[in-house]
């Protein structure tokens, strides 16, 4: 009974605006960790052998034969959806400027989550060890001396644990400081309250729908797997979230993430909730525009 009471206690009131889809992007992204974990475990258990000699062959086998091809596609597409939702979640936070005041700490845990998720994604692309995976690995090790085994260990053990722990802290902080308010100037105290369980009901529903989208896409589209890598040459492009790096030089791999991290940390200090549109939002949208422009340029730039 104590457990039941403890669960009931979690059903605290939340504002009605938390039922809007834009206030659920983060929750849906968190839900997608479930299909990511399930498909990842299936791939590891039934097909993929993470050794330097076997990695590419087993990834290729998984791609060509049987239902593992679809599982790999679902895993990959869900990962892309996961990153896209995190980006949309961050954008909603910036639009409503939910990082001001004592909510800064939630934003900071979210920024760390964003970087862990991006690194998680990148290490995943190295696992298949095809030409694209090899090139990602080569770029990631430009400034470090870690080997491929480290990346595999990170993707399979370290980063999943890290992301769950940080996500737990992020969620606890949200519970303590409440779900983000509406944008400044749009607060409405007369809105009827909803409850946390009702909010979560919708998050889980949209999470299922997002997973179904990944399955339906996987039925018709398989993420590419190239042949075994040829060392010393570079001719593939990064996956879309990192395509903006393609037109830039190797130092961008260090300087851009550092600058992005510094910028995201600085946003709560630049916000002025009393204004309709403030400097923090301007900086964020300029950076997003740059990211989009460079990505577009990278997509159409001829292999150099």
């Amino acid at each position: 009974m104590k457990l039941l009471d403890a669960i009931k206690e979690q059903n605290y009131p939340v504002p009605a605006h938390s039922m809007r889809l834009s206030y659920m992007f983060g929750g849906i992204a968190a839900f997608l960790l479930v299909p990511l974990a399930v498909t990842g475990v299936l791939l590891a258990y039934y097909g993929y052998v993470p050794s330097a000699e076997q990695a590419h062959k087993t990834a290729a086998d998984a791609t060509v034969f049987g239902s593992l091809a679809g599982i790999r596609a679902v895993h990959s597409l869900t990962a892309e959806l996961f990153l896209a939702l995190i980006f949309l979640h961050a954008t909603r936070i910036v639009v409503t400027r939910s990082y001001h005041g004592e909510r800064k700490i939630i934003w900071y845990t979210g920024v760390v989550l964003l970087f862990v998720a991006a690194f998680f994604f990148l290490t995943g692309t190295t696992l298949k060890l095809d030409q694209a995976g090899y090139e990602t690995y080569a770029h990631l090790t430009l400034f470090t001396s870690v080997n491929q085994v480290w990346f595999r260990g990170a993707h399979v053990i370290l980063l999943p644990i890290l992301i769950v722990v940080i996500l737990g802290v992020h969620a606890l902080l949200i519970k303590e400081k409440k779900i983000s308010p509406l944008a400044p100037g749009r607060r409405s105290d007369d809105e009827p309250d909803s409850t946390f369980f009702h909010h979560m009901q919708h998050v889980v529903a949209y999470g299922f729908i997002a997973t179904s989208v990944a399955f339906l896409l996987a039925a018709f589209y398989t993420p590419p797997l190239l042949g075994a890598p040829v060392e010393g040459v570079e001719w593939t492009k990064p996956p879309w979230p990192f395509l903006f790096l393609y037109p830039l030089n190797s130092w961008a791999l260090i300087s851009i993430p550092l600058a992005a991290f510094a910028g995201l940390v600085a946003l709560p200090f630049l916000t002025k909730p009393e204004k309709r549109f403030d400097l923090s939002q301007a900086i964020y949208f300029v950076v997003v525009a740059l990211w989009f422009g460079l990505s577009l340029y990278g997509a159409f730039k001829h292999y150099a």
């Binding site: 030409q131 040459v233 990064p238």
Partner: peptide
């Protein structure tokens, strides 16, 4: 378009 090794253009190694 952005997936690695996509089809447009002839891959020209560095």
């Amino acid at each position: 378009l952005a997936h690695a090794g996509h089809e447009h253009g002839e891959a020209k190694p560095k």
